[in-house]
Computed example of a mutant assay.
Amino acid sequence: MSNQKVVVITGASSGIGEAAARLLAQNGFKVFGGVRNPNRVSSIPGVRFGTVDVNDDTSVANFVEWVLSEAGKIDVLINNAGVSLLGPVENTSTAEAQRVFDTNVFGPLRMIRAALPSMRAARSGLIINVSSVLGFLPAPFMGLYASSKHALEGLSESLDHEIREFNVRVVLLEPTFTNTKLDVNAAHTEAPLGVYERQAYATIETVQDQIKSAPSPQAVAAKILAAINGPYQMRQPAGGQATLLSRLRRFMPANAVDKSLRKTFGFGR
Rank of each mutant, 00 (worst) to 15 (best):
residue 1 M to L: 10
residue 3 N to H: 12
residue 4 Q to K: 12
residue 6 V to S: 04
residue 10 T to F: 04
residue 14 S to E: 08
residue 15 G to V: 05
residue 18 E to V: 13
residue 23 L to S: 06
residue 24 L to W: 00
residue 25 A to N: 05
residue 26 Q to I: 08
residue 28 G to Q: 10
residue 29 F to K: 06
residue 30 K to A: 13
residue 31 V to W: 00
residue 33 G to P: 04
residue 34 G to E: 09
residue 39 N to G: 15
residue 41 V to C: 09
residue 42 S to W: 01
residue 43 S to D: 11
residue 43 S to P: 08
residue 45 P to E: 12
residue 45 P to I: 03
residue 46 G to D: 07
residue 49 F to T: 05
residue 49 F to D: 01
residue 50 G to R: 02
residue 51 T to Q: 10
residue 52 V to G: 08
residue 53 D to I: 03
residue 54 V to T: 07
residue 57 D to T: 11
residue 58 T to D: 15
residue 60 V to A: 09
residue 61 A to I: 08
residue 61 A to S: 13
residue 62 N to P: 14
residue 63 F to T: 05
residue 66 W to D: 13
residue 67 V to Q: 03
residue 68 L to R: 06
residue 68 L to N: 08
residue 71 A to L: 05
residue 72 G to C: 11
residue 73 K to G: 11
residue 73 K to Y: 02
residue 76 V to Y: 03
residue 77 L to K: 02
residue 77 L to F: 03
residue 81 A to F: 02
residue 82 G to R: 03
residue 82 G to A: 10
residue 82 G to C: 06
residue 83 V to W: 00
residue 84 S to N: 12
residue 85 L to Q: 03
residue 85 L to R: 00
residue 87 G to F: 00
residue 87 G to H: 00
residue 88 P to H: 05
residue 89 V to S: 12
residue 89 V to D: 09
residue 91 N to L: 14
residue 91 N to T: 13
residue 92 T to W: 04
residue 93 S to L: 07
residue 98 Q to V: 10
residue 101 F to H: 04
residue 106 F to G: 07
residue 109 L to G: 10
residue 113 R to H: 14
residue 113 R to K: 15
residue 115 A to Q: 04
residue 116 L to K: 01
residue 116 L to P: 04
residue 121 A to D: 14
residue 123 R to T: 15
residue 130 V to H: 00
residue 132 S to A: 09
residue 135 G to Q: 01
residue 138 P to F: 00
residue 141 F to Y: 07
residue 141 F to W: 02
residue 145 Y to A: 06
residue 145 Y to E: 01
residue 146 A to M: 03
residue 149 K to F: 07
residue 149 K to Q: 07
residue 158 S to K: 06
residue 158 S to F: 04
residue 162 E to M: 05
residue 162 E to H: 02
residue 164 R to M: 13
residue 165 E to S: 15
residue 168 V to L: 06
residue 171 V to F: 00
residue 171 V to D: 09
residue 171 V to M: 03
residue 173 L to N: 03
residue 175 P to N: 10
residue 175 P to S: 09
residue 185 N to R: 09
residue 186 A to C: 14
residue 187 A to W: 01
residue 187 A to V: 10
residue 188 H to T: 13
residue 194 G to N: 12
residue 194 G to M: 07
residue 195 V to Q: 08
residue 195 V to N: 11
residue 196 Y to L: 12
residue 196 Y to T: 12
residue 198 R to H: 13
residue 199 Q to K: 10
residue 199 Q to Y: 04
residue 200 A to W: 01
residue 200 A to E: 10
residue 202 A to T: 13
residue 203 T to S: 13
residue 203 T to P: 05
residue 204 I to Y: 05
residue 205 E to P: 10
residue 205 E to H: 11
residue 206 T to I: 09
residue 212 K to P: 11
residue 213 S to C: 14
residue 214 A to S: 14
residue 214 A to M: 03
residue 220 V to N: 00
residue 221 A to R: 00
residue 221 A to D: 02
residue 222 A to C: 06
residue 223 K to Y: 04
residue 225 L to K: 04
residue 226 A to E: 05
residue 230 G to F: 02
residue 236 Q to R: 12
residue 237 P to C: 11
residue 237 P to H: 02
residue 238 A to W: 01
residue 241 Q to L: 15
residue 243 T to G: 13
residue 246 S to C: 13
residue 247 R to T: 14
residue 252 M to F: 09
residue 252 M to G: 13
residue 253 P to L: 11
residue 257 V to E: 00
residue 257 V to A: 08
residue 258 D to Y: 04
residue 262 R to D: 15
residue 263 K to A: 15
residue 264 T to Y: 02
residue 268 G to H: 10
residue 269 R to F: 11
